[in-house]
Design a protein around this nucleic acid. Structure first.
Lengths: 215, 215
DNA sequence: GTCTATAATCTGATAGAC
DNA sequence: GTCTATCAGATTATAGAC
């Protein structure tokens, strides 16, 4: 049963096609990392994989489709990074939240261009497709669950926390790229947030009854 | 004694020249606001002021020079916004800090493109000149002074505060443009910050001796 | 599948006439 | 000061040969 799309009829060809496609995508990721997100051109991309620009259209219908695939790839990496198992599964809720914050920060700072693509909206005509966006939504839902498990029910808490983390990363990237001027402040910021909207998580001894009692 | 630059010799002409220059700059500001920062073109800009693109080069040597002028204009507006007198000069230090935070947030959110130009580094080859950058430095120094006046000497405090404010604005602009989802959280965020690194400012009665005693 | 050829358009910038 | 003319190139994308 061959695919309905313009994909080749045979499975062998389909595999080859998919292989070249992901090869192009990897080259695109390389290119934007070194040249900047806005400087991606079909010419350069084709040259990077040994093709002329026109041949790339056999794999992606448009440049925006490439951005969309990059976005999805980034969103999946984001979900994977945020889903990574904690060192100790029995860790306290607030420890898990601090670990999450560190993961978020590290993920963002490790690839500024990916950060720009995922979290800033800087490419003039580009809007990610729902499919590409979906993993990012899942990652946020994950964080929301972690908050609930820590007994944090204030609906504003998540917004404030994401803002603080986004601010730390954006300042680090814009004003001290490669340094640690804001990286050093992540733990302190999380403690500050927890103190503000979940003091019981910090002050109470780590017993289950205590956690319930302070709610 | 005529100017050495390609400016006209007579004062009348120089005034006319400067007038057209600022007219072009205003048109450029309009254009980037409506079309996006990266979409500025000399053709469109010329058309906006009733010229051909080539004639604009009589006023700005390059497109980057226009970006630089826009940057300087934005930085001066930023300094002006942050220097605006508080409603009551006798206000408490922490009230002044909260007012500053609100001013910063409002300034950023009121003009997303200007924010992008000033605080994100998104135009491929553009680096603002020291002259253009200078007012922004002055504005930060102003904030630093305000912190000192509130008795906050922790060197990390300013970095953390700017990060939190930057995060609130960036989330507001990216995820709820025109709304108030993060705007509502500004006061709470400032209180949280103050509680963390200057609790004495909040808890102590507003007397001078008290302020000194808690240091 | 990849190529050549090319459409159609946009870019910043310069030279020189008026 | 502004124009015409033009350079020298970039861009995305399509049509059709091989």
């Amino acid at each position: 049963m061959p695919a309905a799309a313009p994909a080749p009829p045979s499975d062998r060809r389909a595999q080859r096609h998919a292989g070249t496609r992901s090869q192009i995508l990897a080259a695109a990721a390389d290119l934007v990392r070194s040249e900047g997100l806005a400087s991606l051109s079909m010419r350069d991309l084709g040259a990077r994989v040994g093709m002329r620009a026109q041949s790339v259209y056999g794999y992606f219908p448009s440049k925006h489709a490439i951005y969309d695939a990059l976005f999805q790839q980034g969103a999946e990496a984001f979900l994977a990074a945020m889903s990574a198992p904690t060192s100790s599964e029995a860790a306290e809720p607030h420890e898990r939240l601090m670990a999450s914050a560190q993961r978020f920060f590290t993920f963002c700072v490790s690839d500024p261009v990916r950060y720009q693509l995922l979290f800033l909206h800087t490419i003039p005509g580009f809007v990610p497709s729902p499919e590409a966006y979906e993993p990012a939504v899942a990652a946020l839902a994950l964080t929301s669950t972690a908050f609930a498990e820590a007994g944090i029910t204030d609906p504003d808490a998540l917004d404030l926390a994401t803002a603080v983390l986004a601010g730390l990363t954006s300042q680090q990237l814009a004003n001290d790229p490669g340094g640690d001027r804001w990286a050093r402040l992540v733990d302190r910021a999380v403690l500050m947030l927890l103190t503000d909207f979940a003091p019981h998580v910090l002050t109470a001894p780590p017993t289950i009854t205590d956690r319930k009692a302070t709610r």
